[in-house]
Design a protein around this nucleic acid. Structure first.
Lengths: 339, 339
DNA sequence: GTGAAAGCGCTAACAG
DNA sequence: CTGTTAGCGCTTTCAC
């Protein structure tokens, strides 16, 4: 691979400005306590020479990297199914950019990748890691913990139920489910079904719990397993229609599976919302707005969650066992036409 | 931000193995010419200490970073609309991972970001850049060129028509369009319409050109502008039906806009493919397979394109003006039910 | 073959 | 306030 061209060093700037390297360093790093006259000279020299600090040299001495890893488990259905991660990445990117921190993307596909990612994180190449909603049996958290890398999770990890020092950002999945079901019930619906997400993820479990909170005596046949995908939503809806043809409302665990449900309902000749009201979750615009009919859904601030994750990582505790911190963002019902 | 914990150095490994730092370095970097006995000792010490080389220190002397930037223009409609970039990222990630090179993700949103990204690339923090399909007036190529960073583009840049040293990976957009239109004509369709992509991108222009190649005398009213989005596809289809109610086939510039067309056709009571045959482009699985009916489309190997981009960057020429190289991958028609 | 020594470019005490 | 001085951990001649 090509080498970088020779570039001006601190030394060169110092020579040009007629000051010492230390002074240049101070100016470049915005430290106070340099006489304005000198600082101006330095800034001019920097500009004239097109000086850019060498990150490697800086890291070597500061032992920081101004880089964080974003770890995404690729098998994650959502990565290719809806823009969820793209949005979260945008939030993360904004925050990191604002602080001049690099985003190192680590995509995982299989078990071998866990080891590789673990090694990378343990290698001390980044200052921290942002890790997305793992499934319950994922070995990564253990590896990360062992590596001692400051980490913030996206979505509550399954093992974080008790106390502990886990940091994560999540939305109020359970409360959001309440909003959805309450809305449907408020519409006069009595046979409210639920299409779940993959139940090895806490977000799906929490939404299911929220549904059950408000429908305590509901027929179990009104709950059908989905997996956050369109196909999963379709299958679940078919099962639902099969088992309870009298269903008059559906709360789907995300917008994509709600879209699947809409399709099956349409094919079955049920009118939405007249015959069956449907509520989704996420407010994934390209999905919810383009659904037929447009989806009433529970909005979560995905981009904001990403931004918060990054902010928490950069701002938060130092060392191996940072103070625990959880942020749970509120959700909001967005009414469109499906319910 | 937290600092990395103290970690074993080359020096420590050398001491443990009873050799010099130079020898350890040679073993770690796989250089030949170290007696096997010593090498074994070193490897053991490395393992026992859990030694991982310090990239910053290495970069400082080698002037390489083992990192490449992936630049994605965020306003790019596709980023959130379909999994196009996610797929390409996966291909890139696979290749980079295999070579132990980091993926630094740079998301751009506005004009200010151009400057920031340009500065970053010019800063010599990465060994190269992978840049995605820019629009015609994008200032980034100029900035990149000025920065002298080895770069491979995803999708032919608009200004690369002539000769030059531009490197890019693309699919045969024009040939793919031929496949699509030829198929429709082969089905006996005579009033074949085209829904374009955004015409400030070469992929969209090339597909339009391909359409025109095979429909030289086509009524201009059979061509409607789209923008690769679902909404754009819907609007275009409505215009088409309005202007030419007798249309009997549609070639849409991508699967997402084809889905939009399908929706409008369905709403208009046209049967697909009996009344109107529809062909898309991309073979974006979650879109094409889930369309109603499933889309016949022109497949391009998106993930492979990503992999190739990375391979080309890592393998290719060195220095500011690497040998020009373009790779254009073939496309293939995938028949489903829409045509 | 292997080791000794010289930096890569920068920051961080410590003097002055 | 500013300059001097030591390294950070690694690769890379150059001797041995």
């Amino acid at each position: 691979m090509p080498q970088a061209a020779a570039r001006p060093t601190l030394e060169a700037v110092a020579a040009r400005a007629g000051v010492s390297r230390a002074t240049v360093s101070r100016v470049v790093n915005g430290e106070a306590g340099v006489r304005e006259a000198l600082a101006a000279k330095v800034r001019r020299a920097v500009k004239e020479l097109g000086y850019v600090p060498n990150r490697a040299a800086r890291s070597l001495v500061t032992r920081r990297h101004d880089a964080v890893a974003v770890v995404i488990a690729e098998p994650e259905t959502r990565v290719f199914g809806d823009p969820f991660f793209a949005l979260q990445l945008r939030g993360i990117s904004k925050e990191l950019t604002a602080r001049d921190v690099q985003l190192v993307l680590l995509l995982m596909e299989g078990r071998d990748d866990h080891e590789r990612v673990g090694r990378y994180l343990a290698g001390g190449h980044v200052d921290g890691a942002l890790v997305f909603s793992l499934h319950l049996d994922d070995p990564l958290p253990g590896i990360i913990h062992g590596a001692g890398v400051p980490t913030v999770f996206g979505g509550r990890p399954g093992w974080a139920d008790g106390a502990g020092s886990v940091r994560y950002v999540d939305c109020d999945n359970r409360g959001g489910a309440h909003q959805a079901v309450r809305h449907l019930v408020g519409l006069g619906r009595r046979r409210v079904a639920h299409i779940t997400g993959p139940l090895d993820q806490t977000s799906a479990v929490d939404r299911l719990d929220g549904y059950r909170d408000l429908m305590p005596g509901a027929d179990p046949a009104l709950t059908a397993d989905g997996d956050f995908t369109l196909a999963g939503g379709e299958q679940a809806m078919r099962r639902l229609l099969d088992r309870r043809p009298d269903v008059d409302a559906v709360f789907a665990a995300n917008d994509v599976s709600a879209s699947g449900a809409l399709r099956v309902l349409r094919a079955a000749g049920r009118r939405v919302p007249q015959d069956v009201a449907v509520v989704g979750f996420d407010d994934m615009l390209p999905v919810a707005e383009q659904a037929e009919p447009p989806l009433t859904t529970v909005r979560q601030e995905i981009e904001e969650m990403g931004r918060l994750m990054a902010a928490m990582l950069l701002h938060g505790g130092q060392g191996h066992d940072p103070a625990a911190a959880r942020v749970v963002l509120p959700t909001a019902l967005v009414r469109r036409e499906s319910a």
